[in-house]
Amino acid sequence: MAKTRAVAYPPTEWVPASPSNYTASNRPSSYPVTHVVVHVTQETYADTLAIFQNPAKKVSAHYVVRSADGHIAQCVSERNVAWHAGNWTYNTRSIGIEHEGWVDQPEYFTDEMYRQSALLTAAICDRYGIPKDRQHIIGHVEVPGASHTDPGRYWDWSRYIRMINFA
């Protein structure tokens, strides 16, 4: 059974990833946190959580945001290194946020998903002193060496960054 615990904002549900799917650390002492990486799951919310809990998958993110209502699960503590970016340097220096949906189905990018994700991202940026701009809040596709295309062409970056800055 998942427990509820709070971070600075918003309240999140604690749904831990398998310890086999992230690296224990002591960030920001061990690695500075300088970026937020935005992902799209290409899976349902429930399936994404199950993947993160499967020790054979070797993947995780710090947070998963549900499409329908913006509900957020935290899967990896921010002090630990989630395996989300496919690039060790970016994994160590970023917080990964997965968003339920598919890159070619913009109907998954709901108002409530954007709202809750923007509030979460703003809180993360405030906590680590990360500038709230596109140089520091990036898509998975922008990670050097990335083979992924998310969040895709339907992700509204202008809206998202504006919401983060007004949070």
Rank of each mutant, 00 (worst) to 15 (best):
I130N: 00
Y31D: 13
E98I: 01
I164L: 04
W83N: 14
W157P: 01
Y22I: 07
T41D: 15
D104R: 06
F52E: 11
E43I: 00
P131R: 00
V40W: 07
S147I: 09
P131C: 06
V7Y: 14
R5W: 10
A68M: 04
D150E: 15
E112S: 15
A24E: 15
M1L: 07
A17L: 01
V141P: 02
A50H: 08
R27N: 11
A56D: 13
G139R: 01
E112W: 01
D133C: 06
R127A: 14
D126S: 12
P16M: 03
T4P: 02
V76R: 09
A146P: 04
T4R: 05
S20P: 01
S158C: 00
W102S: 08
R5C: 08
H148G: 00
N26C: 01
Q116T: 12
P19K: 07
P32Y: 11
D150V: 03
Y22A: 04
V141K: 03
H35D: 15
V141D: 11
C125H: 06
P10G: 15
A73H: 04
S60Y: 05
S25P: 10
T12F: 05
V36F: 05
V81Y: 05
A167R: 03
N87L: 02
N91P: 08
V141Y: 03
I72H: 08
A123L: 08
I138E: 04
F109A: 14
R93T: 10
M1I: 09
P55L: 00
Y128W: 09
H84L: 04
N54E: 07
Q53I: 02
Y108K: 03
V40M: 13
V59F: 07
L49D: 08
A85M: 03
E107I: 05
A8I: 10
T149Y: 09
Q105I: 10
G86K: 04
R162E: 12
H84T: 07
R159I: 00
F109C: 01
Y128C: 09
G152L: 11
A122N: 13
C75V: 00
D150S: 14
S30A: 14
Q105P: 01
S18V: 01
P144M: 02
Q135L: 05
C125Y: 03
M163N: 09
W14G: 03
I51F: 05
P32V: 13
R5K: 14
L120T: 09
F166H: 13
E78I: 15
C75F: 04
V65I: 11
R159S: 02
L120A: 11
A167L: 04
E78M: 13
P106W: 10
T4H: 09
W155I: 07
Q74D: 08
G152R: 05
P28T: 11
R93W: 00
Y90N: 03
P144I: 10
T110K: 09
Y9S: 11
D126G: 05
D126L: 08
L49N: 12
W14M: 01
A82R: 07
T41E: 09
A56V: 02
I130Q: 03
N54F: 01
V15D: 14
D126M: 02
D111V: 10
A122I: 02
V103W: 04
A2T: 09
Y90D: 00
R127D: 11
E98F: 10
H136K: 02
Q135F: 03
